[in-house]
Computed example of a mutant assay.
Amino acid sequence: MEAADIASLEPFKSGSVSVVVHGEQGEETPPTLTKRIKEYKDCPDHTHLRIYFDSVNFLAVPLTSRVECTEKVWTAYDKNSGLYYVIKRES
């Protein structure tokens, strides 16, 4: 796993993605949301990566998160909160 990298999200901007934030294994997982990534950028204080779905709504992923990225799935794990941020390409 690598630290959160903005460029690793570029392939996920083209098309619909499913998004979910969940805790450790065994905890209840919330439903996924289908979204389209509009843009992504650092937050003003440079602590989080903001993934925008429109001009107002975004998901903030700590830049200290460890990221695993495949062709279809981008996963960031924040050790401090115990949260996983998962973005999957829709088929």
Rank of each mutant, 00 (worst) to 15 (best):
T70K: 07
K13R: 11
L59Q: 06
I6T: 12
K38H: 10
T29F: 09
V73Q: 12
E10I: 05
K13M: 06
C43F: 04
E10Y: 06
T64W: 08
E39H: 12
F58V: 01
G82M: 07
G23V: 04
Y40I: 08
V17C: 06
E68S: 15
A3N: 15
G82E: 04
Y77G: 01
I37C: 06
M1K: 13
D78Q: 03
K41P: 00
V17F: 03
K38I: 07
V86T: 12
H46S: 15
K13Q: 09
S65M: 04
T64F: 05
I87V: 10
F58M: 09
P62Q: 00
Y40P: 01
A4I: 08
H22W: 09
A7L: 05
E71N: 14
K88C: 06
V21I: 12
Y52E: 01
A4Q: 11
P31V: 08
N80P: 12
E27D: 12
N80W: 08
G23K: 07
E27A: 11
V20R: 09
R50M: 13
K35M: 13
D5I: 08
S65F: 03
S91Q: 13
E2I: 09
T34A: 05
K88W: 04
E10A: 14
M1Y: 11
T47W: 07
L49R: 05
I87P: 08
W74K: 02
P44M: 10
L83Q: 10
E2V: 12
N57H: 12
C69M: 14
K79F: 09
S65P: 06
G82R: 07
E10S: 13
S16T: 11
V67L: 07
G15I: 00
D42G: 10
G26Q: 03
H22N: 05
G26Y: 01
H22Q: 08
S55L: 10
A3M: 15
A60P: 02
R50Q: 15
D45I: 13
V73N: 06
E90G: 05
T47P: 08
E90I: 07
K35F: 09
L33I: 09
V20Y: 01
L83V: 03
Y84H: 11
Y85D: 00
R36C: 13
S81P: 08
V86K: 10
H46P: 08
S16R: 14
A60K: 05
S91M: 11
E27H: 10
P31A: 04
Y85Q: 02
Y40E: 02
V86C: 08
H46M: 12
K72G: 09
T29K: 15
A4S: 13
F58D: 07
E2W: 03
E39N: 11
S91W: 07
L83R: 11
S65C: 07
P30R: 02
Y85M: 02
L9I: 01
S18P: 10
W74M: 03
H22E: 05
V19Y: 01
E2K: 10
G23S: 05
M1S: 15
A4C: 15
